[in-house]
Amino acid sequence: MHADNSHHLIAAAQRRHETTRAKATQALRDLDREGGAVTFQIVAQKAQVSRSWLYTQPDICAEIRRLRDVQRGSAGASLPASQRSTEASLLRRLEVANARVRDLTTENQRLRKQLEHVLGQLRASTMAR
């Protein structure tokens, strides 16, 4: 009678499954980081897996759909994740821009008063002649 070696087959299948999941997850990360288009076809090609297998993995399938929807929702070409602005960074940039506008407004008012003063002096010296 032969020994039961099915545990080796089960372990190999589990390793193959985990390797395939890791390749698909890495492909998603790479596409997101690079700003590449995210579709089931592109992820399948990049990860060297079948599209049908991607559809059987609920978490990977959901992530592909989420990234695809994010890209469709943005105007123009999508940006890599590393270049996307967070809400906090956008608010900070707005605060900095508002502070710059206030500074420029103050400087503009100061320069106008200075110009008024110089033009007044020039007019007074012209009339005195």
Rank of each mutant, 00 (worst) to 15 (best):
L28T: 04
R66N: 02
P58Q: 07
L111H: 12
S82P: 00
T19Y: 03
L94R: 11
S78I: 02
V49T: 15
L31F: 00
Y55G: 10
Q109R: 12
A88D: 14
R66I: 00
V101I: 14
A88E: 15
L28S: 06
R72M: 06
T106L: 12
V96E: 14
Q57L: 07
S85A: 11
N108E: 04
R112V: 12
N98E: 15
R68M: 12
R33N: 13
C61S: 15
V49Q: 06
S125L: 10
R65G: 01
D59A: 14
E34G: 02
T39I: 04
R16H: 08
L31K: 01
Q109K: 08
K113E: 06
Q41H: 06
E95V: 11
G73Y: 01
R110K: 12
R92E: 08
Q71C: 03
S78W: 01
N108C: 09
D69Q: 09
Q26D: 12
A24T: 09
A81S: 09
Q83N: 05
S74A: 11
D30H: 07
A37C: 03
L90G: 03
I42Q: 11
R15H: 08
E87K: 14
A22S: 13
R51Y: 00
N98K: 15
R123F: 00
R21V: 07
R16I: 00
S74C: 15
P58R: 04
S74G: 14
A47L: 02
L79K: 09
V70S: 04
D30C: 00
S89G: 05
E95S: 12
A124G: 07
A97E: 06
S74K: 14
E34N: 08
G36Y: 01
Q83S: 01
Q121C: 03
S78N: 06
T39S: 15
R29P: 02
Q121K: 10
A77G: 01
L115N: 09
D69I: 02
Q26E: 09
T56H: 13
L115Y: 01
L91K: 13
L122A: 15
S125Y: 08
R16T: 07
Q45L: 12
A99V: 06
T25A: 14
E18M: 10
W53M: 04
L28A: 04
T126V: 14
D30F: 05
G73R: 08
R112I: 13
G36S: 08
D59S: 13
S125P: 00
K46V: 04
Q83E: 11
R102S: 11
T86E: 06
